[in-house]
Computed example of a mutant assay.
Amino acid sequence: MSKRSTIVDIARVAGVTPKTVSRALNDAPHVSEAVRRKVKEAAAALDYHPNLAAQSLIARRSYLIGLTYERPSPSYVVELQNGALGRLENERYRLVVLPFNHVASRPEELGKLLLRAGLDGVLLAPPACDQPVLLDMIERQRLPYARITPHSDLDRGLVVAMDEVAAGHTVAAHILSLGHRRVGIILGDPSHAASRGRLEGYRQAFQDGAVTIDDSLVGTGDFTYDVGYRVALELLDRPVRPTAILAQNDDMAVAAIAAARDLGLSVPQDLSVAGFDNSEVSRTAWPPLTTVHQPVREMAWDAANRLIAMLDGDTDSDAPRRRDHLHELLVRASTAPPASTG
């Protein structure tokens, strides 16, 4: 097996010292462009690849960015990871994925996990982004962090947000505009602030339309398909069933479509269904799902980008610590006017 090339080999080929090679490869100042080019050409010729572990020891940094989230939708998680990984491509930083269940009931445990992981910084997705105990812990230890769609303490840390209330209002107003008045609602995990925000948006849309929400048609899910299916069956298996269902994510909405079919109902002829997230399952479902596009991938990319800028000292002191992203209603074939408005 041939020996891996080292900076000593590059120095010999380029005719410079190993220290100069190190500075040139790390784009440090006080290295001429001619020398920098010569060093990088020698590195390419020798097929040199830096040892990240050795770099970390020298710099006393891990170059690890953590991403922590709870277990919601697999599609949501994939979008989060792809967004963060997209930003880290061709960077010296690497992503460490740290899923953690029941964050709201044990934020201290998650804090200890993050602090033991040797991270340079961490991306906090819901519901970790809304846990003040966790934020207190990592702030005391000076661990840089960015929060993805938090709903509280928006002046803490780097914040990448979307207006969940406005998004909930948009999709509920669409359902009401079609003429639906008996509307079932499948809530997400109550420990997630997003669930409360979307429900508040629904309530505002119903109030604007002078329609009363029937609390007997509101069921609590947990953002998973299985629980969404069970709640949908409970809502539909009654003498006077809803003509539409608002589900707080796409997995539960697709579960509602499946429950309707198992009960012999057609979507959207007998039941309209709308979801939230615009995940992959919303586009492959049949019929394709009306949903709210939440730019998860873009927000994760943005959060990682801003965190890296902070870690590398490239952040403008006057730059806003919060950045908002827009939602979009995508009307597809799963929603239509009710067969009867009587």
Score class of each variant (00 low, 15 high):
residue 5 S to Y: 01
residue 5 S to C: 12
residue 6 T to V: 01
residue 8 V to K: 15
residue 9 D to E: 08
residue 10 I to C: 12
residue 11 A to T: 02
residue 13 V to S: 15
residue 13 V to D: 14
residue 18 P to D: 10
residue 18 P to C: 11
residue 21 V to G: 15
residue 22 S to H: 12
residue 25 L to P: 11
residue 27 D to I: 00
residue 35 V to W: 09
residue 35 V to Y: 09
residue 38 K to Y: 03
residue 40 K to H: 15
residue 40 K to Q: 15
residue 40 K to I: 11
residue 42 A to E: 09
residue 48 Y to V: 13
residue 53 A to L: 15
residue 60 R to N: 13
residue 61 R to S: 10
residue 61 R to H: 11
residue 62 S to F: 10
residue 64 L to H: 10
residue 65 I to Y: 04
residue 72 P to W: 04
residue 72 P to S: 13
residue 73 S to V: 06
residue 76 Y to A: 04
residue 78 V to C: 12
residue 85 L to Y: 07
residue 87 R to I: 10
residue 88 L to S: 06
residue 88 L to N: 08
residue 90 N to E: 14
residue 93 Y to D: 12
residue 98 L to K: 06
residue 103 V to D: 05
residue 105 S to A: 12
residue 105 S to V: 02
residue 107 P to I: 03
residue 108 E to H: 12
residue 110 L to W: 05
residue 113 L to Y: 12
residue 114 L to W: 12
residue 117 A to T: 09
residue 120 D to V: 02
residue 122 V to T: 11
residue 122 V to A: 06
residue 123 L to W: 08
residue 126 P to T: 12
residue 129 C to H: 08
residue 134 L to K: 00
residue 137 M to F: 09
residue 146 A to E: 08
residue 147 R to Y: 11
residue 149 T to W: 04
residue 153 D to G: 11
residue 154 L to H: 05
residue 154 L to T: 11
residue 155 D to S: 14
residue 155 D to E: 15
residue 163 D to Q: 04
residue 164 E to S: 14
residue 164 E to R: 07
residue 165 V to G: 04
residue 167 A to G: 09
residue 168 G to H: 02
residue 171 V to R: 01
residue 172 A to H: 07
residue 172 A to K: 00
residue 176 L to R: 13
residue 179 G to K: 12
residue 180 H to Q: 06
residue 181 R to P: 09
residue 185 I to Q: 07
residue 187 L to E: 14
residue 188 G to V: 06
residue 191 S to C: 00
residue 193 A to R: 12
residue 207 Q to A: 15
residue 209 G to P: 06
residue 209 G to W: 09
residue 212 T to R: 13
residue 213 I to N: 09
residue 213 I to E: 12
residue 215 D to R: 06
residue 218 V to Q: 03
residue 218 V to P: 04
residue 220 T to I: 10
residue 220 T to P: 02
residue 220 T to A: 09
residue 222 D to Y: 07
residue 224 T to R: 05
residue 225 Y to M: 01
residue 227 V to R: 14
residue 230 R to V: 11
residue 232 A to C: 02
residue 232 A to E: 04
residue 238 R to L: 11
residue 239 P to K: 14
residue 246 L to F: 11
residue 247 A to H: 03
residue 249 N to G: 05
residue 253 A to L: 02
residue 255 A to W: 03
residue 260 A to E: 07
residue 261 R to P: 03
residue 263 L to Y: 08
residue 266 S to L: 04
residue 267 V to E: 07
residue 267 V to G: 03
residue 270 D to G: 06
residue 274 A to P: 02
residue 279 S to T: 07
residue 279 S to W: 03
residue 280 E to G: 00
residue 286 W to L: 03
residue 288 P to I: 02
residue 288 P to R: 04
residue 288 P to Y: 02
residue 294 Q to R: 09
residue 301 W to P: 00
residue 304 A to D: 01
residue 304 A to W: 01
residue 307 L to W: 10
residue 308 I to L: 15
residue 310 M to W: 08
residue 310 M to T: 13
residue 310 M to S: 04
residue 312 D to L: 09
residue 312 D to P: 05
residue 312 D to M: 01
residue 312 D to C: 01
residue 313 G to P: 08
residue 317 S to E: 11
residue 318 D to R: 15
residue 320 P to R: 13
residue 322 R to G: 10
residue 323 R to K: 08
residue 326 L to N: 10
residue 326 L to W: 05
residue 327 H to P: 02
residue 329 L to V: 10
residue 332 R to G: 06
residue 333 A to M: 07
residue 336 A to T: 05
residue 338 P to T: 10
residue 341 T to R: 14
